[in-house]
Simulated assay, not measured.
Amino acid sequence: MIVHSELYCGGQRTPDTPEIVARNRTASDTAFAWIDLHEPSDSELRQAQRLFGLHDLAVEDAQAPHQRPKIERYGDALAVVLCTLRYLDEVQEVRTGQVSVFVGHDYVVTVWSGDRGGGLRGEVHQ
């Protein structure tokens, strides 16, 4: 699911749909887009790939849970896979997850699987 899609332009944040965010990021040299996905469907991830030109191999990594942490360069973009851990003291349990981060000069796309631990922007909103 798409958790957040926001455009930062001139220091101002404007939430909008992924298509509008992706299109408007090219309208200004200072615009920066961020799309945050949690366990996206194949079509949602392919939409992000199309909008931001994400590399096929990096998208495959984002779709496959339990990847090893790594950083890959694809042209002028980076793809980073990180493992997440969160300890829940009340039940004495560790929850795991994975986040794939795609970084270009004017965008970040984050793709979470498993436990977000609150994520970068708080809990997942339905």
Results as ranks from 00 to 15, higher is better:
A48M: 05
D42C: 06
K70L: 11
S113P: 05
L37V: 01
L120S: 13
H105V: 08
E123M: 12
P40E: 04
Y107F: 12
D16H: 07
Y8G: 05
V94H: 11
A64M: 11
A22E: 00
G119L: 03
S5Y: 00
G119Y: 04
A33P: 02
A27K: 13
Q92A: 13
L54C: 10
E72R: 15
G11E: 07
A58L: 09
T84I: 05
T17H: 04
E93M: 14
L82H: 12
E90H: 14
I35Q: 03
V109S: 08
F102G: 00
R46I: 07
P18K: 03
Y74N: 13
Q49F: 04
P69I: 04
H66S: 09
A64G: 01
V101A: 03
D76E: 12
V103E: 06
D61G: 06
R46M: 13
A27C: 08
L78N: 10
T17N: 06
G119V: 04
F32G: 00
A62G: 06
Q67T: 04
H125C: 08
V81H: 06
W112F: 09
P69A: 07
T96G: 08
L7I: 01
E19G: 10
P40K: 04
A31D: 00
L82R: 15
F52A: 02
V94I: 15
V91M: 13
G118R: 07
D106Y: 00
L37K: 00
F32Y: 08
V94P: 03
Q63N: 06
T14K: 05
G119H: 04
V80C: 11
G97S: 09
V21D: 01
H4L: 13
F102H: 02
Q12H: 13
T17R: 08
G122L: 08
V81P: 04
G117D: 07
D42N: 08
D29H: 11
A22M: 01
V81L: 05
H125K: 15
E44L: 01
V3P: 03
Q126C: 05
G10R: 02
R68K: 08
Y87F: 15
A31K: 00
S113N: 15
P40N: 09
L78K: 08
F32N: 00
E6L: 12
P18R: 02
Y107W: 01
E93P: 00
Q63T: 05
A27D: 15
C83G: 13
Y74V: 06
Y8T: 14
V3A: 11
N24Y: 06
E123C: 07
H55L: 06
R73Y: 09
F32H: 01
S100D: 07
